[in-house]
Computed example of a mutant assay.
Amino acid sequence: MTAEFTLHKAAADNAQEVAVMVGELLTEIMNAIGTQAFNFDLAATTSRLKDFLNRDKYDVFVARGRHGDAVGFITLYESYALYAEGAFGTIAELYVRPDFRAEGLGLRLVSQARSFGASRGWTRLEVTTPPLPQFDRTLAFYEREGFAVSGGRKLKVSL
């Protein structure tokens, strides 16, 4: 039997429950790669997310299970680039708690992001996955949903 889920746009008062899931996501990634790649602090992440939401810098959609518990989320932000022919969206985080995977919830969250982006006039939606074997299933998921590799690797430098 497929579980029932509802999706809603998060507000600042949802920040802590989303931040908890961000911690779960980052822990899962670090366990998969065997490296302490992220510094996670629940209070700081909650505060940052509240600020992002209050300033309309971030859009978050939360998935809830039958009993109203948060079981997944997707975060988006708007960017601008000449190569993208204007405004576009980036999926910063997508997470579904393990007990709720393989029930189509990731697809529903991505579909929500696509609809939201279309309503904002975005030309495209981008996402980055690590080019590591540990994330082959993640890459395959996005490719099934119509995402195509656009080249390059995501690089960073701390400021």
Rank of each mutant, 00 (worst) to 15 (best):
I33Y: 08
Q36A: 08
T75C: 07
K9Q: 12
V22C: 12
K156R: 13
G86P: 02
T45D: 08
L107K: 14
Y80Q: 07
N39H: 14
G23I: 05
S150G: 02
T46F: 11
L155V: 05
F52R: 12
G146M: 06
A19H: 08
D59R: 09
R48S: 11
P130E: 03
F5H: 11
D51Y: 13
G151N: 10
A37L: 15
F5P: 15
T35S: 05
A32V: 07
N54F: 04
G89W: 02
R144H: 12
G86W: 08
G117F: 00
R48L: 08
H67I: 01
I74N: 00
Y58V: 01
Y142L: 03
F88Y: 15
E145D: 10
F38P: 00
F52N: 09
G151A: 13
G86Y: 11
D13W: 06
Y83V: 01
E4W: 06
K57R: 13
K9I: 03
L53Q: 12
T6G: 11
V149Q: 07
D13R: 13
D136A: 13
P131T: 01
V22H: 11
L76K: 08
Y80M: 12
G117K: 05
A81C: 03
G146T: 05
Y80E: 02
G68D: 07
L42K: 12
S150V: 10
K154C: 08
F52A: 02
L155H: 10
F38C: 01
G151Q: 12
E93T: 02
E24I: 03
F38S: 01
A44I: 09
P133F: 02
R55Q: 13
T45Y: 06
A19C: 06
W122I: 00
E78M: 08
T27V: 03
R137I: 01
A84S: 12
Y95L: 07
R101H: 10
G151H: 13
K156W: 11
V22G: 00
E4I: 09
L26A: 03
V96L: 12
F141V: 03
L94M: 01
K156C: 09
A32N: 11
Y80C: 08
K9Y: 05
Q112R: 15
G117S: 15
T129V: 14
L125K: 14
E145I: 02
S47Q: 13
V157P: 00
T75G: 01
F147S: 05
F73N: 01
L159Y: 07
E28Y: 15
R55L: 08
N31W: 08
A43V: 07
F100K: 07
A15T: 06
E4N: 09
L139A: 11
D56I: 00
T27I: 00
A32E: 07
L25K: 09
D69G: 13
D136M: 07
